[in-house]
C-alpha cells in the first residue's frame, strides 16, 4: 500500500494550489497534486489520505468532497461546510440563528416579493446570487425602479436566480476585512481597499494587514463555532456599531494576503492537514490493537 499523503485536488491550478504544493514540499510531507477532471468517481479509498479539496467550481468541489466523505475519507473542508459556505442564504441563516452580527438580509421567491423585501430593508440594497463568488452579479440597487429592473433580469436568468437574496447596503470606511481561520485558530487578517463599492482582491484593489484584535478574534471564533471549517476566510465590515460578518468562504484564495501579513497561510493549511494525517494514522493503530475492524 502506498504511503499516506495529502492529496491536493484541483480543476484549475491557481497560485494558491501551487503555494500549497510548495508548502507540502517544504514540510517534507508526502503529497500529490491531482486534477479531478481526470477522475471517474467513486474510486476506492486506500489508506488514510487527507484530501485537500481545491476545485475552482463550487459544485464540483462539493460533489468530490461528498463522494470522498461517504467513502470514509477525510476532506478539507468537510462537504457540509462547503454546503453552508457555498450558499449565502445558508450562511446568513446560520449566522442569524447564532446571533452573529451581519448586514440585514431578506430572501424572496418572486419578483414582487423581492421588491417588497428591498423596500423593507431600505434603499440602497444589494442583490446577490445565493451561489457565486468574486463579486460576480452583485447589484447595488438605489431605488424601486432599479430594483424592478434587476428583479426582472434575474427572473430570466434561470432557477438559481429566482431565489432573491437581498442584503442591506453597508457603507464601508473604504475597506473591508478578510480574516483567515485555520484549524479553528484565526491566523491573520487583511484590509481590502477599493474605490469601488465591491472590495474583492480578485477584482484588484490594495491590501494591507489588519490587526487580529480582540473584537475580530471573538467574532471569528463565534463564526467557527457554528461553521467549524478546517480552513475558512471570513469577510467582515467594520462599522460604527462594530464588526459585521458579510461572507464565509470555504475555498479561500489567499495569494494577496501573504505579503501584507507575512503569514505563511499555505504552510498553516498544510500543517493542519499533516496533523489530521497523523491523527488518522494514530487512530488506525489504536484500532489495530483494540481488536478486529476495518480501516478506510
Amino acid at each position: 500500500m502506498s504511503k499516506d499523503r495529502i492529496r491536493i485536488l484541483y480543476t484549475r491550478l491557481r497560485k494558491e494550489e501551487k503555494l500549497l504544493a510548495e508548502a507540502s514540499q517544504r514540510s517534507g510531507v508526502d503529497f500529490t497534486l491531482e486534477d479531478v477532471r481526470d477522475w471517474v468517481m467513486p474510486q476506492e479509498i486506500c489508506g488514510n489520505d487527507i484530501f485537500l479539496c481545491r476545485c475552482i467550481g463550487h459544485l464540483q468541489n462539493l460533489e468530490v468532497a461528498r463522494i470522498l466523505h461517504h467513502a470514509g475519507a477525510r476532506t478539507v473542508n468537510a462537504p457540509e461546510i462547503m454546503e453552508i459556505c457555498g450558499d449565502k442564504i445558508a450562511t446568513s441563516s446560520i449566522l442569524k440563528k447564532a446571533e452573529i452580527p451581519q448586514p440585514g438580509f431578506l430572501v424572496a421567491f418572486s419578483r414582487d416579493a423581492a421588491l417588497e423585501a428591498a423596500g423593507r430593508l431600505g434603499y440602497p440594497v444589494v442583490f446577490k446570487p445565493s451561489v457565486g463568488s468574486w463579486g460576480r452579479l452583485l447589484a447595488k440597487v438605489g431605488d424601486p425602479d432599479m430594483a424592478e429592473s434587476i428583479a426582472e433580469h434575474k427572473d430570466h436568468l434561470g432557477p438559481a436566480h429566482q431565489v432573491f437574496y437581498i442584503q442591506e447596503f453597508i457603507q464601508k470606511p473604504g475597506f473591508d476585512i478578510r480574516a483567515f481561520i485555520v484549524g479553528g485558530e484565526p491566523v491573520c487578517a487583511i484590509r481590502r481597499y477599493s474605490d469601488h463599492w465591491i472590495t474583492n482582491t480578485a477584482r484588484g484593489g490594495k491590501t494591507e494587514e489588519h490587526p487580529l484584535d480582540k473584537d475580530l478574534r471573538e467574532i471569528l471564533c463565534r463564526v467557527h463555532d457554528v461553521i467549524p471549517g478546517d480552513f475558512l476566510a471570513v469577510d467582515c465590515f467594520l462599522t460604527d456599531s462594530g464588526l459585521l460578518v458579510n461572507e464565509v468562504n470555504d475555498g479561500a484564495e489567499f495569494r494577496n494576503s501573504i505579503d501584507p501579513t507575512g503569514r505563511d497561510i499555505a504552510g498553516d493549511v498544510i500543517a493542519l492537514c499533516s496533523s489530521l494525517l497523523k491523527r488518522k494514522n494514530l487512530k488506525r493503530k489504536e484500532k489495530k490493537y483494540s481488536g478486529p475492524g476495518t480501516s478506510v
Partner: peptide
C-alpha cells in the same frame, strides 16, 4: 491558455469562468 500537457508542452484555450467559480 491552460497547460494541458508538460511533456511535450501543450496549451489549450482556458475554460470560461463558470457561474459557481470562486472561493
Amino acid at each position: 491558455l491552460e497547460v494541458v500537457c508538460t511533456t511535450p508542452p501543450g496549451l489549450a484555450e482556458a475554460p470560461q469562468v463558470e457561474e459557481d467559480w470562486g472561493e
